[in-house]
Amino acid sequence: MKDIEYNEAGQFCSGHNACAGCAEALSMRVILNAVGKNTVGVVVPSCVAIIVGAHPRSSAKIPFIHGLLESAAAMASGVKRGLVSQGKDDTTVLCLAGDGGTYDIGLQALSSAAERNEDILYVCFDNEGYMNTGGQTSSSTPLAASTGSSPLGKTTRKKNLVEILAAHRIPYIATASPSHLSDLSEKVTKAKAIRGMKVIIVVIPCLPGWGIADDAAVKVSRLAVESGVFPLIEVEDGLRYSINSADKTKPIDEYLDLQKRYRHISDSERVELQQDVDDSWDRLVARTKM
């Protein structure tokens, strides 16, 4: 049997306000435990800010600053510089944001921090839309998915953030999934040991936003990986791509069929989506061979 295991050191607490079955809370648990005690967190408006908690409570054992939506990477930079200026060079700075705060409004600050190669670990919880505001389209929303602001399905593709970041030549970029918790934990641990800018993008199937059952977030994220919709990869120095999940083994159908946001698509759209996933996978594989 495949085992999962990660360091559980009590850094994330019960009683948080995530929805029952939330994969983001689950990922938070893994990340906070992997990153450890000597860490300062930055969190910007998103579900993850709700999970860290409303005053007077916090679900994290590390300190957090609840920052501004477009400022995640800038604030993380500020925290790092503040710590360094006071001799706390060894403290990790962990920045948590959603895809809206990363792909959209926060991209400018993210690009800047990446270009400066700030020594921060930036984690994007990518639920492919503005889910904390009830489910609207972001530039991470994939083609054909319906949201509150694209009820007939989004007509453009998901932005490829990995390639954008790779173009900045930062030391480490990775994708991760709550279905692969050991992998997530290892990636956080690996990223933490690297000096400079690290970005980990975690796919988060949003229960209400994607229209999936309370107990299905892990299953859906596993299918996202296995169907090649969300491959688990690492990119080092923006150049060296590697795929860390098994090969794409499944068609996208089961992945799509578990979600309400794809319920409206036609058979021909389904074929196009499959083609798109196949093409992206081929391009990714080609990159790993460069």
């Binding site: 607490c13 019960s14 009683g15 948080h16 306000n17 908690g53 005053h55 007077p56 409570r57 916090s58 679900s59």
Partner: peptide, 10 residues
């Protein structure tokens, strides 16, 4: 904040 989320019984 000054309390743990554990004071919230979900």
């Amino acid at each position: 904040t000054h309390l743990s989320s554990e004071t919230n019984h979900t």
